[in-house]
Design a binder for these strands. Structure first.
Length: 486
RNA sequence: CGGGGUGUAGCGUAGUCCGGUUAGCGCACCUGCUUUGGGAGCAGGGGGUCGCAGGUUCAAAUCCUGCCACCCCGACCA
């Protein structure tokens, strides 16, 4: 385990170092693919389980739809095609021929209709919804699936943008526009809870501009988060799809009073990108910091007894501590591997374990434990009979991490009154800038050209003639957040 | 797809310009001994068709030709 690059030296190198050195993930053999290693997968699983419960508790059911989608499905919704056409993996043949140890595609096996590996599942799901929805009694229909999707991106980065990634995608069908819009907003709140209460990541939530909206949506709401380099990361989205997919797939229902009516849709998702957000929001020069609620290991115990004195009593002492933690449902691990204590301290700090317990002969003789917090590095002594306090300390670490991230975001969010100030702020540093915008694509594009910043989301609409657009000076339509984004 | 660059052990690299011992070094790995409260030390050891295919030469990691792969910067994006 080598020393990792400092954040201040090269943030993206730091990011990659942390992932590889902590065994979260590794590169796959095909460009842009990623192997999620056991430690990373345990972390993902904890996030997934927390979110899955919230999704089920709000009346959604899990299902599974196929990986393969007929090409023609993707053509049915005009904007959807436009958005995804350039990044699809396409299956064209079904056979290989072995020749002298090398494999050739068998031209005779060419498929009648090419198959797309799903970049998202709206099309296949609405194809099925057409079969399932005929009456108002069938609505609302609320399904979710945990799946992998493939988007053939040009530039990839571990967890943030991989060719294949894991996510959940929720898809719902509703009888009215109001109900569908309410669903879209309810999900935004589910995501906010996940980010704030579990990942300890503060969020900014708002609507997407025309240019940033999901391909096929009438309205997209996004969860924006600030990384430690002060760049923005879109960490989740919830879309109000209107009747776009309903009409593209000819889905209608009969109302109570026997009228044929259109069906309104939503879709929403968060992905393994959240792990990337987690790393970049909390991590420091010593590595990861994982919030206790989702940490694969919440407490690591380091026994220190090189000379193996009083071995039996000492190891009983360690086991008692470990058992006490288990009985409180705390996920703990005793690291009794070879290696010096210093090496282990660094290793588990790097891996982001919230609490380390150092237990040596010193502690054993005095019935104490030395506890060290990952979030603020503070050490304290704990009597072996007051291990209950560990639970409270985990809670305190969780909220401390959220508060730190929140103040960091607030300290780096500012306002700008004129475009000169705006450009200057962004040329010297990354920041979130709250400002007014005239609502036009043209202005947004020009600002992006000149500063690389984009509109992360619309915070509120403005109906006040005294507010002017930062760039065009025309009357403002929205208060928005600009930032450079991943 | 445009511009730039790199391929030598699991990782990072020296050597390439100017051809010539057994391809060197660090990390990691294995063995043994001594160590262990913030990344231990010493000794020994294993691991390489120098990206691939041709060519030039007495001799190629090194020169020539072709191919392949990957990385960085841009356009695209959860």
């Amino acid at each position: 385990m080598a020393k990792i690059t400092k954040q201040s030296e090269n943030f993206s190198k730091w990011y990659t170092d942390v992932i590889l050195d902590t065994d979260l993930a590794d590169y796959g053999p095909v460009k842009g693919t990623m192997v999620v290693k056991p430690y990373g997968f345990a972390l993902w699983t904890n996030i997934r389980d927390a979110l899955n419960k919230m999704i089920e508790d709000t009346g959604h059911e899990n299902a599974y739809f196929p990986l393969f989608i007929p090409k023609s499905f993707l053509e049915k919704e005009a904007k959807h095609v436009e958005g995804f056409a350039k990044e699809c993996a396409v299956v064209t043949h079904s056979k290989l021929i072995a020749e002298d140890g090398s494999l050739q595609v068998d031209p005779a096996s060419k498929l009648e209709e090419e198959i797309i590996v799903r970049p998202t599942s709206e099309t296949i799901i609405w194809h099925m919804f057409k079969k399932w929805i005929t009456s108002y009694r069938d609505l609302p229909l609320k399904v979710n699936q945990w799946a992998n999707v493939v988007r053939w991106e040009m530039r990839t980065r571990l967890f943030l943008r991989t060719s294949e990634f894991l996510w959940q995608e929720g898809h719902t069908a509703h009888a009215t526009k109001e109900e569908a819009m309410q669903e879209t907003l309810d999900i935004v709140e589910v995501y906010r809870t996940l980010f704030e209460e579990y990942l300890a990541i503060p969020t900014i939530i708002g609507r997407k501009s025309n240019l940033e909206r999901f391909a096929g949506a009438d309205e997209t709401f996004s969860i924006e988060t600030m990384m430690r380099d002060k760049k923005a990361l879109q960490a989740g989205t919830s879309h109000y799809l209107g009747t776009n997919f309903g009409s593209a797939f000819d889905v209608k229902f009969q109302s109570k009073d026997n009228k044929e009516l259109p069906v309104y849709a939503t879709s929403w998702g968060v992905s393994t990108r959240m792990v990337g957000a987690l790393i970049m929001v909390h991590g420091d020069d010593n590595g990861l910091k994982i919030p206790p609620k989702i940490a694969p290991i919440q407490v690591v115990i380091i026994p220190i007894n090189a000379k193996k004195e009083k071995q039996q009593e000492f190891s009983d002492y360690i086991n008692n501590v470990s058992d006490a933690l288990s009985s409180m449902n705390i996920r703990s691990k005793v690291d009794d591997s070879d290696g010096s204590p210093g090496f282990k301290f660094n290793k588990w700090e790097l891996k982001g374990v919230p609490i380390r317990l150092e237990v040596g002969l010193k502690e054993f003789e005095s019935s104490q434990i030395t506890l060290c917090r990952r979030d603020n590095k503070e050490k304290q002594q704990l009597h072996v009979d007051s291990l209950k306090e560990v639970q409270e300390i985990l809670v305190s670490i969780q909220s401390n991490m959220f508060n730190d991230a929140k103040s960091f975001m607030e300290e780096n969010t500012c306002t700008a009154e004129d475009f000169n100030t705006f450009s200057e702020i962004l040329s010297s540093d990354n920041k979130f800038i709250k400002t007014y915008w005239d609502g036009s694509d043209e202005t947004e594009l020009k600002i992006k050209d000149e500063t690389k910043a984009t509109i992360r989301c619309i915070l509120e609409d403005v109906d006040d003639n005294t507010k002017k657009c930062i760039y065009s000076n025309k009357p403002a339509k929205h208060l928005v957040i600009f930032a450079k984004a991943y």
